[in-house]
Design a protein around this nucleic acid. Structure first.
Lengths: 248, 248
DNA sequence: CACAATCGTGCAGAACCGTGCAAGACTCGG
DNA sequence: CCGAGTCTTGCACGGTTCTGCACGATTGTG
């Protein structure tokens, strides 16, 4: 029996029973417990299982690497994401902003979509790499800790050389009165720059953003192609429509 | 019996049983184990099977050597990460490469560390943002799907304007004979460029990289300040030390 | 606290590996 | 047909890796 075989057997027992008892497996395979223990030690070293007294258990649920903190996408954000997918045409060059709604959109993209997606957000880039086959261009710059988006001179310089078909913009406030607003002054500048270099700008705004206003202006509503939201019956959405804004 | 015949037989046994035992096949064919071993070695070199102690197994589904591992930082990588933390001095400007070992390092950094960390990897940037207070500079460029690292002209251009104190380099192979190697040709170029712009380069190499060689040369060992690894007693590490390489 | 199960470690024997070497088989030009 | 060169094969040797056992330490249990 080969070492690799034996280890595969250990892992399959683990998968089947949810645990491995060194003693039992040793008897099953006709080997000494020492050998099994050594295998378990090595497998634990590789992170494939978790060693415990008497045997082993499945590896600790490998602490979700990223976005553990980034709050999970709410149902509202997911609805917005699904609607916004339709805005991305095959072959287009798209700028996908940062933020949890954009992240939900990145995850909602069909795996087969062919497009080029530019993003200022490392977490969006990771999500895209994991779940889609699009070409991903990461903007460089200083990473803003709270919003997880790049900014600064380096980002501005790169943005100035970009030309995109669609910009999917995330903000923290959308209101008929205040327009589009966000909480970070520097993010606002980056978003404005991205909008200026894109043929169309669509706003991704989950329900709780509607009617809200934050500290820094991003753009007036007149400069965007429309807003993607949910919760049709929200009075503020009606106000936006009356003001001539397209709302999906 | 012709060599080609014999090898075809080995592969068919492998396909039938899922494994090949050198001893058994040698007896079956009436040949010495040496001959079989040589065949297995050559077939493994061609990537048609995977050599293991005692025989061979089907070639590893070389598919996703990166992403699958992204989630699990093995104990070895974590040890390397903890050792490497000492290389980052407060206030320094550090380039932290991509890869799982670098990711483990990002997570191992003390939350209070003050430093500027430049990285070509979105996942490293996310990890740094989540667990540390360092200033994070994300390099821009096309995100390489497998390695989760940026590359291309945009990245090269930015790197050319960087000047860092320390570069913590991740590779997939470190050997006294082949030097530092990695699996992606473009990543190799990016890593070289980063090394060229850093005062010191240290290699992060968890145990399984030691003695391994991949397809593309990154740097000769002479051009790095040292290698951070674990598994003190590895013979290849002794060889590296004899060759004058600093090993932590 | 006492007892049993389990663990880690050191050790020796066995299995396995790579390498060098020599004999034989094959190839190819003359 | 012949001989030089190359390739293949089996063997011998030294080194490495794996495995089971012994022993003392550690952990779990009543």
């Amino acid at each position: 029996m080969l070492t690799a075989e034996r280890r595969a057997h250990l892992l399959s027992v683990l998968a089947r029973d949810g645990k491995v008892l060194a003693k039992v497996v040793a008897a099953d395979l006709g080997l000494s417990e020492d050998t099994i223990r050594r295998d378990l030690r090595d497998l634990a070293e590789e992170g494939l299982l978790q060693r415990v007294y008497g045997g082993a258990l499945p590896a600790a649920p490998a602490a979700q690497p990223y976005l553990a903190r980034t709050t999970l996408a709410t149902a509202s954000k997911e609805r917005v994401a699904r609607t916004a997918v339709a805005l991305i045409e095959p072959g287009a060059t798209v700028v996908l902003d940062g933020g949890t709604t954009a992240l939900a959109l990145a995850r909602a993209l069909p795996a087969s979509l062919r497009a080029t997606i530019l993003t200022p957000s490392p977490s969006v880039a990771v999500a895209l790499a994991e779940t889609t086959a699009v070409e991903i261009v990461m903007l460089g710059g200083v990473v803003h800790r709270h919003s997880l988006v790049v900014g600064g001179a380096l980002a501005a310089e790169q943005i100035a050389r970009v030309r995109a078909d669609v910009f999917l913009l995330g903000v923290t406030g959308v209101s008929a009165a205040a327009g589009l607003t966000t909480g970070e002054v520097e993010d606002a500048a980056t978003k404005r720059a991205l909008a200026a270099r894109s043929a169309q700008t669509w706003v991704l705004a989950s329900a709780e953003k509607i009617g809200a206003a934050s500290a820094h202006d991003v753009l007036p509503l007149a400069e965007v192609a429309g807003v993607v939201s949910d919760g049709e019956d929200h009075p503020e959405l009606r106000a936006l429509r009356r003001a001539g804004v397209t709302v999906l």
